[in-house]
Design a protein around this nucleic acid. Structure first.
Length: 842
RNA sequence: GCCCGGGUGGCGGAAUGGCAGACGCGGAGGUCUCAAAAACCUCUGUCCGAAAGGGCGUGUGGGUUCGACUCCCACCCCGGGCACCA
């Protein structure tokens, strides 16, 4: 039959139009089938799509398409995370409006995604800046408020001077820079809106154990971020300015109550509210203020630069150590954080490296209270309960497990984290009413207000007489006005016609909130909205959400390991507590795909090293690009882009094309007898079916494609080995069909063209069932075994798979006779189907 | 400093404790052709050797095992996350 050329452009556009016409990817609830919700993190409409998008969405598309062939009812939606600063910046640059830029980019990306042949249900798309979406974001805010999870409070916050807005803790990167623009972040004391995510800290930590389908790396990162510490809260009695106990207490959090006897000074954070009062008018005022002011001047970046020396100053005050009644001086130091614990710390220089350095610098005593078993002090101070040694010769603090010394009644107990000494001291404090067991989290409440225009308006009203009042449900949504000119630096706060309003409670004149919500609030629930995206009566219908959710397979970049994934988990738990859903975790399985780089560097427009997918689609078609980006590396690894192999991928697809065209005619009769060559090809077909099925399950798309190449090679071997008249036409057609089916998730257009036009099937290949794999059919009847002598391969034997062990050993020994001759055979190990290992003496 | 990943040919990468380097790229040679392209075929870790064959090889050093890229211990290097969290 005549061979035509594989021409991706014609067939790709043809089938994209046909699928849309047939409504192939429209998802409906169907209780009779198991469902599978496959979701890729939705994109920010930043402009043209890049290789990271191609990789991310191709992975999801392969999973979705194959799941559908395997009989699942598949939901595979897409949308846009459309609010955010880049739109404002672009608008300022082009003297335009953020909405214009955003919608133009969405249309551009929509066209690109369609051109890639992704199997999305376009009837469910979600765009977060559209009113039909953000109104429900405001509704959520209101529900959170009703539940007591919204708070407006003043505290030191992260301020990005370049973005001119505050940021959540999670949005400040490790180097103390803004996650979006990478400018150094400043600290400011501001009144802001918060979601109380800390109320869910324990659940967010505990439920990580219910997620076996998540990478350990991500779970560890989240656990570290939540940062649970077990310890005690200890009350220290404050002395007044004359040094006499005042009856008032200051509480600290510590993970090491067992070291209390070694507490020789007490520290307050520079921002601590009592500091000013303690030193007002005293001789210590100036030196303390110096420390406070220098700390206030520092940015997060400066605070972290190198081995910065700790600074501190004595306040003139004392507190009483509850375990021994000792008066210890109160200092202020810049290494104490106001945001963690109580902003006050008991300092134990012998047990904490920071306290140790501080004590050395300012000449404070360092009495040992927990000593390592191997330390000479362990013998010297064994059983000594009174303080006889006020300082150590150590080079650094000892924070490990050891024995308590110089610790009164607790002397001799084991000391260390979670030690008996720690429990004993805390129990004593509880009895005395001077402390309690306590748990502290590193996680802070989520700061959600942003001083920017292009976001979801916070539905709240400030009333001079009623205070903060939520916008009533009936008045939602608070529409984001269009007449704000960001090119003039305007925000909602510059528009009285927006913020001048009436109090819904008392009817008096009031001011509408002009901050918008963090865009991460928009992306924290979109996956739920897809289950009922067009509902204008409710956020979603419970039945639909219950049918589709949770997401069975979520796919996205590791950069969201904490941010988006933590927030979404939080939202889901709140929705459950609000009775909107019944499950506690939104994403059952998570695949974090690696980044696509160029010469080891992340691609970015500013660096000018962006690889445009369009050019490659133009040259080789999207099927080749899809297959190639999956073939280059396993999905979770970073990938260095290279053009080198793309041509090879196209070459292989052309090879498959010719093979199927050649074999795809009406099946001629099978040859009467099964030849060895036919047997080999048939077996290879079954083996590859099993391998591809298995590899897709494990997301090993690169080896799945390699296996398909092997089947292609085996087909060519058969053709080359058997002259045409003797070929088994039934077999070659079966192999052609099998290749087409197994390739369908990867190269949907080529497979469709081959399936319908060449193989003559009437229905879409994507509606066909995934081929079953029968291990029996892929099993060979003979096996080649390697024969090892003392661990080295010295020969090979071919034996029947059902041969007895004696037969195998005899054949093996004969094969390696020259290596064994005249030596004593000490041991023979037979691994069926693999090898024979002979151990000889000498 | 702490917590995760990862180190395999010229390159991307394969290997439930069982023949290291599948598959692809790149390279060499060949068939076809007036020629080229395309296609098809063969070879391609490294060293010694004409060949047969053999030695050496998965970051380094030890260990377990008949057998280790794989498991254990120590270390080196690269990437990432967190980082004065009391």
């Amino acid at each position: 039959m005549s061979i035509s050329k594989y021409d991706p452009h014609v067939i790709e556009t043809k089938w994209q139009a046909e699928w849309e016409r047939e409504g192939l990817y429209h998802a409906e609830e169907d209780a009779s089938k198991p469902k599978k919700y496959v979701l890729e993190m939705f994109p920010y409409p930043s402009g043209d799509i890049h290789m990271g998008h191609v990789r991310n969405y191709t992975i999801g598309d392969v999973i979705a398409r194959q799941s559908s062939m395997r009989g699942f009812q598949v939901l595979h939606p897409i949308g846009w995370d459309a609010f955010g600063l880049p739109a404002e910046n672009a608008a300022i640059k082009s003297n335009s409006h953020p909405a214009k830029w955003t919608y133009a980019n969405i249309e551009k990306q929509r066209a690109s995604f369609k051109r890639m042949g992704f199997s999305y249900d376009w009837d469910r798309d979600v765009v977060t800046c559209r009113e039909d979406y953000y109104r429900w974001g405001q509704w959520i805010f209101m529900k959170f408020w009703e539940k007591g999870l919204v708070e407006r409070k003043s505290s030191p916050v992260n301020w990005c001077p370049s973005c001119k807005t505050v940021l959540a803790n999670e949005q400040v990167l490790g180097e103390g820079v803004c996650w979006r623009c990478k400018s150094p972040v400043e600290k400011r004391e501001l009144e802001q809106w918060y979601f109380k995510i800390t109320e869910y800290a324990q659940q967010l930590l505990d439920d990580l154990d219910t997620l076996p389908g998540w990478p350990d790396r991500v779970k560890t990162m989240q656990a570290n971020w939540i940062g649970r510490s077990e310890g005690a809260e200890v009350d220290f009695e404050l002395c007044d300015a004359t040094g006499e106990p005042s009856g008032e207490t200051i509480t600290v959090f510590t993970t090491r109550p067992d070291t209390l006897f070694g507490c020789t000074f007490f520290l307050l954070a520079p921002e601590h509210p009592r500091v000013k009062e303690f030193v007002a008018g005293s001789e210590y005022e100036k030196s303390v203020n110096d420390v406070v002011e220098s700390a206030a001047r520092e940015t997060a970046v400066e605070r972290q630069l190198g081995e910065r020396e700790k600074r501190g100053a004595f306040t003139g005050r004392y507190v009483v150590n509850p375990v021994n009644g000792e008066k210890v001086p109160v200092w202020v130091s810049d290494y104490v954080l106001m945001e963690y614990g109580t902003g006050a710390v008991m300092a134990v220089p012998s047990g904490d490296q920071r306290d140790f350095e501080f004590a050395r610098k300012y000449g404070l005593p360092i009495p040992p209270v927990v000593v390592a078993p191997e330390d000479p002090l362990a013998d010297e101070l064994a059983g000594v309960s009174e303080r006889v040694l006020a300082d150590v010769s150590w080079a650094e603090a000892f924070a490990g497990d050891g024995t308590m010394v110089q610790s009164g009644a607790f002397t001799g107990l084991a000391g260390g984290k979670a030690s008996e000494g720690m429990r004993a001291v805390t129990e004593w404090l509880v009895q005395e009413g001077r402390g309690k067991f306590a748990i502290n989290f590193r996680l802070r409440d989520w700061l959600i207000s942003r001083q920017r225009y292009w976001g979801n308006p916070i539905p709240a009203i400030h009333c001079p007489s009623c205070g903060l009042v939520p916008v009533p449900e009936a008045d939602l949504p608070v529409r984001l006005p269009e007449n704000v000119d960001v090119t003039k630096g305007e925000t909602l706060a510059d528009h009285p016609e927006f913020y001048e309003t009436e109090c819904p409670s008392c009817g008096g004149a009031a001011r509408r909130e002009t901050d918008t919500m963090d865009t991460f609030t928009c992306s924290s629930w979109y996956y739920l909205r897809y289950s009922d995206a067009r509902n204008d009566q409710a956020i979603w219908e419970r039945e639909k959400a219950d049918y589709w959710m949770p997401v069975d397979q979520y796919i996205g970049g590791i950069e969201h390991a904490i941010l988006h994934l933590l927030y979404s988990r939080f939202f889901t738990k709140v929705f459950r507590d609000l009775g909107l859903i019944t499950f506690a975790e939104p994403f059952t399985n998570l695949l974090t795909q690696g980044m696509v780089k160029l010469d080891g560097a992340t691609m970015s427009k500013s660096k000018g090293n962006v690889v445009a997918p369009e050019d490659m689609i133009e040259r080789y078609g999207c099927d080749a690009l899809r297959a190639y980006i999956l073939f280059m590396a396993p999905p979770d690894k970073d990938l260095d882009w290279s053009y080198e192999g793309l041509e090879g991928m196209f070459r292989w697809l052309s090879r498959v094309w010719r093979l199927v065209e050649d074999a795809g005619g009406p099946a001629s009769a099978a040859t009467s007898a099964e030849t060895p060559a036919a047997k080999t090809l048939r077996r290879e077909m079954h083996r590859v079916t099993g391998k591809v099925t298995d590899d897709i399950e494990r997301f090993q798309f690169n080896t799945a494609i390699a296996a398909l190449m092997e089947l292609t090679n085996a087909s060519y071997d058969y053709r080359n080995a058997v002259p045409e008249p003797e070929r088994d036409g039934v077999l070659t057609r079966e192999v052609a069909e099998r290749l087409t089916l197994l390739l369908a998730p990867f190269t949907p257009h080529m497979s469709e063209e081959l399936w319908r036009e060449v193989l003559g099937r009437s229905q879409s290949v994507h509606l066909n069932s995934w081929p079953e794999f029968d291990p029996a059919l892929s099993a060979a009847d003979e096996a080649e075994l390697a024969v090892q002598v003392n661990g080295k391969v010295r020969g090979k034997v071919v034996v029947a798979v059902d041969a007895s062990e004696e037969t195998v050993v005899a054949a093996a020994l004969a094969e390696v006779q020259s290596w064994v001759e005249g030596k004593e055979v000490k041991k023979v190990v037979v691994v069926p189907g693999k090898l024979v290992s002979v151990v000889v003496a000498g």
